[in-house]
Simulated scan of single mutants.
Amino acid sequence: MELDLASLQSVRSFDETFLKSEFRLNILINNAGLVNGGKTKDGVGMIFGVNHLGHFLLPVQLLDRLKECGPSRVVTVASIAHEFGKVDFNCLSTHKDLAVGESDWALFQKYSHSKLCNMLFTHELAKRLEGTNVTCYSLHPDQCFNTL
């Protein structure tokens, strides 16, 4: 199935198609990550849009199926770079900039912010799903071999 995390409409379409055609969902792995300038089709910064917003919408729309099929897991591949991230509660407006021509460091900072958002989202999702048969995890890719 086609999925473009740089388009929230594509995520919605994917979820709709998946729910119509697949009756089981036991694991969802959010594993996209990029450090590109530019904008998504929705007009937000590419880094924030792909790395976080797509990974936010995808599991939210699949939660009922994950619960029905439990035990289920949502695994988000974040990054140790989250330690450099900061939460800017105006991020929907601050991440709309193009980031074109910015330094590698500026792009890395945006990547770090997006990965911190992944971690915080996973933590909150896990809290909200307590008592269901769905567990949530986030990890740094180099650490996954030690934890899985």
Rank of each mutant, 00 (worst) to 15 (best):
D104A: 05
E102Y: 15
L107F: 11
T122K: 01
G54Y: 02
K39G: 09
G37Y: 01
L116S: 01
I47F: 10
D4S: 09
I29C: 08
F48T: 02
T17E: 10
K39H: 12
D88I: 04
G37K: 00
D4L: 05
F108C: 01
F121M: 04
M119S: 07
S138Y: 15
G38C: 12
K67E: 12
I27S: 08
K110H: 08
T132E: 14
G33W: 00
D4A: 04
F18Y: 15
I47M: 10
P141F: 03
I47V: 14
L139F: 13
F121G: 00
S79R: 03
V74G: 00
A99D: 01
E16L: 06
Y111S: 09
S112D: 06
F145T: 06
F48D: 03
R73E: 11
F89V: 06
N51L: 06
L66A: 02
N36A: 07
F108W: 15
H95Q: 15
R65F: 14
L53R: 02
L139T: 09
E83V: 08
N90C: 03
M119K: 11
V75I: 15
F145C: 06
K127C: 15
L8E: 13
S114L: 02
V11E: 01
N51I: 07
T132S: 13
S79E: 09
G131Q: 07
E22T: 07
H52T: 03
F89C: 03
E124P: 05
V75E: 02
T135G: 04
D88G: 02
N146H: 07
T94M: 03
H82E: 03
S93Q: 15
D15T: 12
N133Y: 08
N31D: 14
N31P: 11
L139D: 03
H140F: 10
D97N: 12
F18A: 05
N36E: 15
I47T: 10
H113E: 14
T135P: 04
R73G: 03
A106P: 12
L58N: 02
L125N: 04
G43H: 13
L58Y: 04
S72N: 10
G37L: 03
L53V: 15
Q143Y: 05
H95I: 06
V11W: 00
E83F: 15
E68L: 11
G33T: 00
N133P: 11
T122F: 05
G45S: 14
K67S: 05
K41G: 06
C144R: 12
G38Y: 14
R65M: 05
L116N: 01
E22L: 08
K20I: 07
S10G: 13
Y137G: 05
G33D: 00
F18N: 04
T135W: 01
